[in-house]
Design a protein around this nucleic acid. Structure first.
Length: 570
RNA sequence: GGGCCUGUAGCUCAAUUGGUUAGAGCAGAGCGCUCAUAACGCUUUGGUUGCGGGUUCAAGUCCUGCCGGGCCUACCA
């Protein structure tokens, strides 16, 4: 039995995520986790909220709450929505946990001992009004290049010129608008990634079969300009993991915290500890320590492309630099962006459909199917309401849902609400089984390779095969002349419903559960042996006719939603 | 500015990494079926693979120059 450690990029705490965030990490990670569990493998699937950093502090201030309280509330909200989408995390942790604090400080101490941390004194803009240092992008002013008056301190959005905050004319705080700014000297810790460049490059170069998106971004950072740069891993903030060297104070770093991108990936490990401490597991080290049983673990990470540099370089640098036997990632599955109706989804602008809104409109399975079958794997992809309506109505309602409906209703009207007896397979059934076997093996291969869209396509083809068979066998005709043959045909079709429920569960878990319930079986064993899997429901086994598995989206609804989501989220 | 990705049917995407006549789904057209959520099945129209050169026995695939789209560029996360 293989063991799979699976993590999804951890969503930031400052609000509810949109569908683009969902399809870029959590949802495909869930698909893979569910598939591996279904195959009988051992899975630890972890996620968490990423809670530190300036945006969290500002969001809390805007909400008028202490940041710890705000994060606790938002974690509960995000956790609830994750449940709503049926994301099957074994634990949904928090990067602000005590476990992560201790572990982050531990890693920093190990890196310092290894000589991989250096102190850098630098100048940074401080806002007296806001009482805080301002990251470059939180300073606004007039662009010296083009005169745009809302240029940010890191880059002018109008002319795309890269800027230094001190370049800005009439700089002001983007938070308060205050112009009472000054440049102050401050000291920070830098992780000496440059010392590890060769080691990291060799590691990246020897990874096989990684998405081009993953390796090309990593290589770019390794080789661009002067090569991999050292990175600041501390910030002058109140909210975060206090800077410590292991359990000891770090002289000169009082009042500072670690940079969120330093502690966030470490939360992948801490979440496993949280999982144990929450009483859900017993041994987290056998997942994370290669000296304590994690040797045979296969570790897969899922993320959007914006997260790739941190997962291919910074976090591995932390792990490798520690000199301790922590488990390194085996495969990084990265995604492009999902756009919304001709533009980008935007959290800050409230553009697009957000996770909570999506669930208010339709059940999770509808979204899961569309998002996964259109996952932005090879390039950015686009959500449109027309496309969503078409896919849901055609794939889910017509091809799969209607199959369940026609089979169960036919059996109820011509036989009874039990699997009918009699008849034997002929060439037509043998051909169907052969087709299904080939397709199921292809589906497994695509799922194993995390080819999400191809997997969805193959699954759909498996559903279609059932309709083709029914059309060909035509039990409604056979019934008039040879009822036993019709019984055999519909018995096979009823077994197909159970088979479809098992195969489809990673994509549409609720509908699969409903189909299993209708078939009144709890045998969700994977069809390694397809002929056997199609004889599991034996003559006399009772079933029920389910309610509509998937309803259709009407033109009126679609138009209404188009209108409803065309503006800005309030 | 630099780098990376991308451009294939009306739409959304494939194409075993240079190999036969570029394939699917949706939309369109025709036929069939009547168990079913007016659902299902079969057949079919539709392509100068963004444009121009080049390499090769062979190019959607490799090289080169244009044109368009997107992303990244290290203090947002």
């Amino acid at each position: 039995m293989a063991r799979h450690l699976i993590t999804s990029a951890i969503p930031y705490i400052n609000g509810i995520k949109h569908l683009g965030n969902l399809v870029g990490s959590q949802l495909p990670a869930d698909l893979y986790a569910r598939f591996q569990r279904a195959r009988g493998n051992e899975v630890l699937f972890l996620c968490a909220t990423d809670e530190h950093g300036t945006p969290a502090e500002l969001a809390a201030a805007k909400a008028g709450k202490p940041v710890a309280e705000y994060c606790a509330e938002m974690h509960a909200v995000q956790s609830g929505i994750a449940d709503g989408f049926r994301l099957s995390f074994d634990h949904f942790g928090r990067s602000s946990s005590e476990q992560n604090k201790a572990l982050t400080q531990h890693f920093a101490g190990r890196l310092a001992d290894a000589g991989l941390i250096r102190e850098v004194s630098e100048k940074q803009v401080y806002s007296n009004t806001d009482g805080r240092f301002l990251p470059d992008r939180y300073i606004e002013g007039t662009c010296p290049n083009c005169g745009y008056d809302k240029a940010r301190g890191d880059q002018c959005e109008n002319c795309t010129k890269q800027l230094d905050p001190t370049d800005l004319i009439d700089p002001r705080s983007a938070i308060s608008g205050s112009t009472d700014l000054e440049v102050r000297e401050t000291k920070h810790l830098y992780l000496c990634q440059s010392q590890m460049k060769d080691q990291l490059e060799e590691w990246i170069d020897t990874r096989e079969g990684w998405p081009i998106l993953t390796t090309s971004i990593a290589k770019k950072w390794l080789t661009d300009g002067d090569g991999l740069q050292d990175r600041g891993i501390t910030r002058d903030l109140a909210w975060g993991v206090p800077v410590k060297k292991g359990t000891e104070d770090w002289p000169g770093m009082e009042g500072k915290v670690f940079y969120v991108w330093f502690d966030a990936p470490i939360e992948y490990i801490a979440a496993a500890q949280e999982w144990v401490d929450a009483g859900k597991g017993t041994d987290w080290e056998r997942w994370w320590r290669t000296d304590k049983g994690a040797d045979d673990v296969r570790y897969t990470q899922f993320m959007g492309k914006d997260n790739v540099p941190f997962h291919t370089l910074s976090f591995p640098a932390t792990i490798l630099g520690s000199g301790e036997p922590w488990k390194l990632v085996d495969y990084i599955k990265s995604f492009n962006y999902l756009n919304y109706d001709g533009g980008q989804f935007s959290t800050s602008q409230g553009r697009g459909v957000f996770m909570d809104q999506a669930l208010e409109i339709l059940p999770a399975d509808y979204w899961r199917w569309w998002l996964l079958s259109h996952a932005p794997e090879s390039s950015d992809s686009e959500f449109t309401w027309e496309n969503f309506q078409t896919s849901v109505n055609k794939d889910l309602a017509d091809v799969l849902g209607n199959f369940v409906s026609r089979v169960t209703k036919f059996c109820r009207s011509k036989f009874s609400e039990a699997v009918p007896e009699g008849g034997a397979y002929g060439p037509r059934e043998e051909a169907l089984i052969e087709t299904l076997s080939t397709r199921i093996r292809a589906y497994e291969a695509h799922m194993e390779a995390m080819d999400v869209r191809k997997s969805a396509g193959e699954l759909r083809a498996i559903w279609v095969a059932g309709n083709e068979y029914l059309q060909d066998a035509a039990p409604w005709t056979t019934f008039k002349t040879d009822p036993e043959a019709a019984a055999m045909q519909i018995r096979l079709a009823l077994n197909l419903i159970r088979l479809y429920a098992v195969l489809s569960a990673p994509f549409i878990p609720d509908a699969s559960a409903q189909m299993m319930e209708a078939m009144q079986t709890e045998d969700d064993s994977w069809p390694d042996d397809v002929p056997a899997a199609l004889q599991l429901l034996t003559p006399g086994h009772a079933f029920t006719v389910p309610d509509v598995t998937f309803r259709k989206i009407s033109d009126e609804e679609r138009e209404g939603w188009q209108e409803q989501f065309s503006g800005i989220r309030s």
